[in-house]
Design a protein around this nucleic acid. Structure first.
Lengths: 189, 189
DNA sequence: TTACAAAACTAACAATTGTTAGTTTTAAAT
DNA sequence: ATTTAAAACTAACAATTGTTAGTTTTGTAA
């Protein structure tokens, strides 16, 4: 197993702290304390607090972008695509739940350039999702409810997984995927 | 129409700023600038930055608590109760979407006493919700999926309404309630 | 043992933070 | 016109912020 570099250790520790209190409330001295070193020592490994944030968020956003593009460009039916999207969110959540907190709550603290890049990726992701739902309605695979409400309610659940899943002990990822499909698509009553 | 006091104006302005950047990233000078006065002048109306945050969050949490208690103690069937809960979230979101951002993202910055009070209200709210779902399953009104997944996916959507609803121009509240019921309960395919 | 790079340290900085004290302005009631 | 309370102001504070400069320690390869 690949041992993580000191820089990666710092970024992971930062993600945990950012999850607990948000980017702005975490000081470099907090982060240093969590690493067992002094704040100035962090700068042997990272360039700035901002670099930590953008690494966490942009890496995750690119992961979602890449995953979504593959799914959207595939020739599966709507239900299969939605299943793949749910799987994507569950996989990313399992691998990096802490980072997802920053992506969801601290993206607005990215500096200009990365902020624009992030916002474009998020817009594109949502647009891909919306098109899949629209196609599903046209193909009679999805009920003709208000598109925006379907997109919003589904995405809001998937985006919030990071808050919930780490607290559920031993729900197997595959069982979760199956149940999440049922609840999100087939309804509960 | 009741004119709002200067203190209420400050709290409303603060809620908007907290929504945009989070509690920790908003300075008293930011807030003063938004009000068109100097930072020190704010203290003629409020006691502290912390008081602003706790007013925003605790008022909203008590509103949810009171609404949920009425619903949980009523003798309606499960579906009607869920409909009332959805209505509660939509009503609160319509009235104070900005404040809900703080409730969702900045509750951890409450000081000890209010933090414990808030966490208890949130626990009780969730437990009430869970019991309603459990009773619904027993009464065969709700499909016997994993309870935690039903509770999580529904609540995550309702909690995130504040991000989405203000951006939808003129979706009537009653239509939204009806569609949200359909999507959350009857499924989309 | 020496050499060297990685990674820690101490000390300090300029800027920003929430907040206080004391004073002046504004506007309505007498 | 005078009084009074509300609401603004200026000036300053002590603490905390992200970050830099320069130095010392640590561990590994030659």
């Amino acid at each position: 197993m690949r041992t993580e570099s000191r820089k990666e250790e710092i970024i992971n520790a930062a993600a945990i702290l950012f999850k607990e209190k948000g980017y702005s409330a975490v000081t470099m001295r907090d982060l240093a304390r969590a690493m067992g070193i002094k704040a100035a020592s962090l700068y042997n490994h990272i360039q700035s607090k901002q670099e930590i944030l953008s690494t966490i968020i942009i890496d995750l956003a690119e992961e979602f972008t890449s995953g979504m593009n593959q799914i959207a460009n595939s020739d599966q039916n709507t239900i299969d695509k939605l299943e793949k999207i749910i799987g994507l969110h569950i996989d990313v959540t399992l691998r990096n739940a802490d980072g997802l907190a920053s992506l969801n709550n601290d993206w607005m603290h990215l500096e200009e350039k990365n902020l624009l890049y992030f916002e474009k990726m998020r817009r594109d992701y949502e647009e891909n999702f919306r098109q899949i739902v629209i196609n599903g309605v046209h193909a009679n695979e999805i009920k003709p409810y208000n598109i925006e409400i379907i997109v919003f309610s589904t995405l809001s659940t998937l985006r919030t997984l990071y808050l919930w899943y780490p607290n559920q002990n031993n729900i197997d990822a595959n069982i979760l995927k199956k149940d999440m499909m049922s609840v999100l698509l087939k309804g509960v009553c």
